[in-house]
């Protein structure tokens, strides 16, 4: 089985991450229940004729895909695989609202064309002129993990060398309104809601992260992407078995990166999982990125930089354990019965 390396990456999110890894610039937002992304100027790389029709998610996806590929020296990808939880919801809302407002008449094409979940993957391919395998996974909280699983299988067992994989999700007003109504987004912020949540709902956000996965290790490789796993149930035995498949035990995990989302609805799953790893450094990311279906992309982007730099910035830390070397990071993400794991090794 071939090894797979992360040779390029890029992200956009609630922190100024599109400029690179600069955690000293991160700002903790303890007031809002929904974070807005810090976005670059898209006009420099997307043609004006195309950009005027693009919703946020499409722009974030194209920008991060372009920069991840650039960092990996612009390989022609053998596949473009994108994960998204709710797809291009902004244009979906526009189209559905137009149906209501105009009493099912006067429906315009643009928002309909761009409202499908596979718009981002399609637009990336169009921008690049790439006719390779193009696929979008819509699988809730593990949409990115499922995309990575597909990429790993193709790289490890087929004759593929370079695959662009990423996750993107955007918000839209009606979606945020509905999520608040059903307690998916908090009504108000608690004092320490990511560490010890006291209310239902997450702090919501949006973002994109893309990665170039390749079978060749390069001088600028960030990490070895060893494995992913997703399931509707995750026992301690299942985690143990997953680690054993990669010749690891619980104590071999140097950093446990969890997606604690600040909701009492998901806290018990995170507490149970964290208890398996008493010897690991604990880190989290959603107090920085906010929660969205593919927020594990921000965690993966962060973990890659942490492995490469061999240092965990204080802003991510949940405990003060020290390790002489950071060799393995396990990213755990959970929401409403769905568990996702991403295993990384230093290279």
């Amino acid at each position: 089985m071939k090894k797979v390396f992360i040779n390029g990456l890029s992200a956009i999110g609630a922190q100024p991450v599109f400029e690179g890894f600069a955690p000293e610039k991160f700002v903790l937002n303890n007031e809002e229940t929904a974070f807005c992304p810090v976005q670059p100027s898209y006009k420099e790389m997307i043609a004006p004729g195309a950009i005027r029709r693009m919703a946020k998610g499409v722009k974030m996806g194209i920008y991060t895909a372009h920069h991840a590929l650039k960092e990996a020296n612009n390989p022609v990808p053998d596949a473009i695989i994108v994960g998204t939880g709710i797809g291009c919801i902004e244009d979906s809302e526009k189209f559905l609202n137009a149906i209501i407002d105009n009493q099912e008449e006067f429906l315009t094409p643009t928002s309909f064309i761009q409202s499908t979940h596979n718009t981002v993957a399609g637009q990336i391919a169009l921008e690049m002129g790439c006719k390779a395998y193009n696929f979008t996974y819509v699988n809730g909280i593990v949409s990115l993990e499922t995309s990575i699983q597909d990429a790993l299988l193709q790289l490890q067992f087929e004759n593929k060398k370079s695959i662009l994989v990423g996750g993107v999700d955007e918000t839209a007003p009606t979606t945020v309104h509905i999520y608040k109504k059903v307690d998916r987004i908090k009504e108000y912020r608690d004092d320490e809601d990511f560490m010890h949540p006291t209310s239902k709902g997450t702090v919501y956000s949006e973002g994109a992260a893309f990665f170039v996965l390749e079978t060749e290790k390069k001088e600028n490789s960030y990490a070895e992407l060893t494995a992913v796993y997703s399931s509707n149930a995750l026992s301690k035995e299942a985690v143990e078995q997953f680690l054993e498949q990669h010749q690891l035990s619980f104590s071999d995990i140097d950093v446990l990166f969890t997606g604690n989302d600040g909701s009492t609805q998901n806290e018990s799953a995170y507490l149970a999982f964290e208890a398996y790893f008493p010897e690991s450094i604990r880190a989290m990311s959603k107090h920085l990125s906010g929660h969205y279906h593919t927020a594990s992309g921000f965690a993966l982007w962060s973990a890659c930089h942490i492995l490469k730099n061999q240092e965990i910035p204080a802003v991510y830390r949940r405990n003060q354990l020290q390790k002489s070397k950071l060799g393995t990071i396990l990213i755990y993400n959970y929401d409403q019965g769905n568990h996702g794991l991403i295993l990384l090794k230093a290279c």
Binding site: N102, F106, L107, T108
Partner: peptide, 17 residues
């Protein structure tokens, strides 16, 4: 102005609406 066929559809809807 550099409009294209999708814009033409938007303009047809504009005239109607």
């Amino acid at each position: 102005l550099g409009l294209d066929s999708i814009d033409a559809l938007e303009l047809i809807v504009l005239l109607d609406k």
